[in-house]
């Protein structure tokens, strides 16, 4: 009898504890539902309708998706996004990792200065960055031209004004802006490396390049995985730098998902195809994230635990 009462009391306590926990989760859940889940569902719903000239919306099924997939611009965007991800993510990781290694291992008094300098572009306004880089790229009177003329190079076109080079010119700006972030992630990763492992490796004769490649790089894999995941999501979210520097031109050569959605929805007023494009981006981001988690595991920070 006494044991039964005790069990009942424990059950009551755990039920009360569970409801308290649900209560704690409620604000976050509400915020998620109002600001994330509902807008996603609303946009997904909009993508199945098309507008008429008198402002009515008629059900169109998957017609908007069909139109988007048949639009040659969509495939230019896909090509640009692949190039963006394939180039920016590894290059940023590589340069960011090297910077972190040299700053952490070979600078002492000026460590803070170098960290700040390389991180500065990350916190600089995109408007400022785009203005400066448009001037750097300008032939004839541009900043790069001022230096290049000393070695006999005359720029005849702007890299962002040529359909063949525009996307690469923008990728360079993006790498310049975000490498500092990769550097910071690797610095944080290095700070968490267990010193006993490094000491043991040194005792075993690992030095310099060998220590870096065979000990430090593998131990920094959580930071690398985080950068990979953030890089893919960041690629799909690209908008301001392209909008401000080329507007997706010339002749749509540097169009990315962000500028394409913006044009369809706000410039052309075709919110239905803008919504369809947004859903495509969302699904792509979701699939890519799940694939990465499945392939690389979910341990994305040095403190994180490997998922079984």
């Amino acid at each position: 009898m006494r044991a039964g009462a005790a069990i009942a009391a424990v059950k009551r306590r755990s039920a009360s504890r569970a409801s308290t926990l649900y209560l704690f989760a409620l604000p976050a859940t509400l915020l998620f539902v109002v600001f994330i889940a509902y807008p996603i569902l609303w946009v997904a719903g909009q993508s199945l309708y098309s507008g008429t000239t008198d402002g009515r919306a008629i059900f169109a099924g998957f017609a908007n998706y069909k139109t988007i997939l048949g639009d040659p611009t969509f495939w230019i965007v896909v090509r640009n996004m692949v190039l963006w991800g394939v180039i920016t993510i590894p290059v940023q990781m590589l340069i960011g990792g090297l910077l972190a290694y040299f700053i952490e291992r070979h600078t002492h008094a000026l460590r803070g200065f170098f960290r700040t300098m390389f991180f500065l572009p990350v916190v600089t306004s995109v408007s400022v960055i785009s203005l400066v880089w448009v001037q750097i790229y300008a032939p004839y009177y541009g900043i790069a031209q001022e230096y290049l003329k000393h070695v006999g190079i005359i720029m005849t076109t702007s890299p962002i004004g040529d359909p063949k080079t525009a996307i690469y010119a923008l990728i360079i700006v993006n790498i310049w802006q975000w490498t500092g972030f990769s550097m910071l992630m690797y610095i944080a990763g290095m700070a968490n490396l267990p010193s006993e492992v490094l000491d043991a490796a040194r005792i075993d004769g690992a030095r310099g390049w060998r220590l870096a490649v065979h000990v430090i790089v593998p131990m920094l894999s959580p930071a690398t995985k985080s950068l990979l995941l953030l890089g893919v999501i960041g690629t799909l979210q690209t908008f301001p730098i392209v909008h401000l520097m080329t507007g997706g031109g010339p002749n749509r050569a540097s169009e990315v998902f962000g500028t394409f959605i913006f044009k369809q929805s706000f410039v052309l007023g075709d919110t239905a195809s803008g919504a369809a494009l947004s859903v495509i981006v969302l699904v792509t981001a979701l699939v890519l994230s799940l694939v990465q988690i499945a392939l690389l595991g979910a341990r994305l920070s040095p403190a994180g635990k490997e998922q079984p």
Partner: peptide, 12 residues
């Protein structure tokens, strides 16, 4: 001007 395709009227 050369490179006009990469230039902006405002503010440059």
């Amino acid at each position: 001007q050369q490179g006009a395709l990469g230039a902006h009227a405002y503010p440059t």
